[in-house]
Every structure is written in structure tokens, then in C-alpha cells.
Design a protein around this nucleic acid. Structure first.
Lengths: 81, 81
DNA sequence: GGTTAATTGGGTAATTTGGGGC
DNA sequence: GTTGTCCAAATTACCCAATTAA
């Protein structure tokens, strides 16, 4: 999967009729490559972060890792040090 | 994770945050696209999982696959490693 | 009926994984 | 202690057109 940055349409999670747009909502899962692109590191480094408990990860039934966008956003904080 | 749709899914089964309503839609069958969204993969990958025996699937009379929520829930687990 | 979106199957390219060593 | 790279095997993504579902 290439490091594709797909633009998200205006996030409209739940419509008035109770329906919602699939796949474009708040908590989509990111691939290691996407997270790596965000932080500017190697995908393997991202996996190391999950190994050391720095990022929670979800496994596909075949063992690949996926990361919650909310978890990633939590790590992105402006640093003044 | 190229699965995206601008229209409403068949019904509200899995909320954008990944949760679901227990008392209401527990036994509803999920489409490949919905399961794909949960795991952050392509719908075809989900079908591949059923072909390799990782997920039991149910077929519509026309041959399309559907998945039980209970089967999917069993596979979801946060991973530390 | 008619429109739109999702699913399916096949083929091929790209990504991910784990280990090892720098 | 952390990160980047090389490797082979496994897994997944994207392409297409036809079928099915809503």
C-alpha cells in the first residue's frame, strides 16, 4: 500500500436519518506505512513502538497491525522542550 | 484501505467508532465492506479470510458473503506485540 | 423499472512481517 | 537504547468487468 493521502470529505459521522458514512469517519485504522509517513520514520519503527507498548495496535486475523487514528493523534502533541 | 462509500450502509450495524448496539443488532449479518472497515482492510481481503477458514461466512442465495457479528467480535483484540 | 453503490472473481503490484546485523 | 536497511515469505491492495443489492 503506497503512502497515499486520501482526502477526507467533510466528516459527517451520523446523518439525521441515523445513517453514517462508512470508512470516512473518525476512527479509521491506519496501516504501519501510513503511520510511518505521518511521523517520518520507517514502518518497522512504528511496529517497534507497538512492541514496546508505546502505541496500541490491532491485529488482522492474519497478523498484520493496524493503528487507530485516535491513538496516533494522541501522540502528536506540540513539544516545547 | 480503499473502502469508502458516500451512501448509507444496509443498516446501522457498526458505528463509526467501532462499537455496536448489542441488544439491537447482535445477530445482524455484516457485509464484507463493514467487516473490512472494522479491520482496516480491503473487502476482498475479508473474503479471503473466509476462504482460508479464518472467518465463517454465510452466503446469500446469490452467492454473496455475509458475516456474523459474533464471529467478528471474537477476532478483535488489542495487541501488545 | 431505473439508478447508484457494493460485491465478486482473476490477475498483478505493493506492503507487511520477523529475524538478523550494522 | 533507538533507528534504518537487507532478506524471504506471507499478506494485502489495486486494476478490470460483470453481477447483486438497496
Amino acid at each position: 500500500m503506497p503512502y497515499r493521502t486520501k482526502k477526507k470529505p467533510p466528516a459527517k459521522a451520523v446523518a439525521p436519518d441515523g445513517t453514517f458514512a462508512m470508512g470516512e469517519t473518525t476512527d479509521r485504522l491506519l496501516t504501519p506505512g501510513e503511520v510511518a509517513h505521518i511521523f517520518g520514520v520507517d514502518p518497522k519503527t512504528v511496529n517497534r513502538w507497538s512492541l514496546t507498548g508505546k502505541i496500541p495496535s490491532i491485529r488482522t486475523p492474519s497478523g498484520q497491525r493496524r493503528y487507530r487514528q485516535s491513538d496516533i493523534n494522541q501522540l502528536i502533541s506540540t513539544d516545547r522542550g
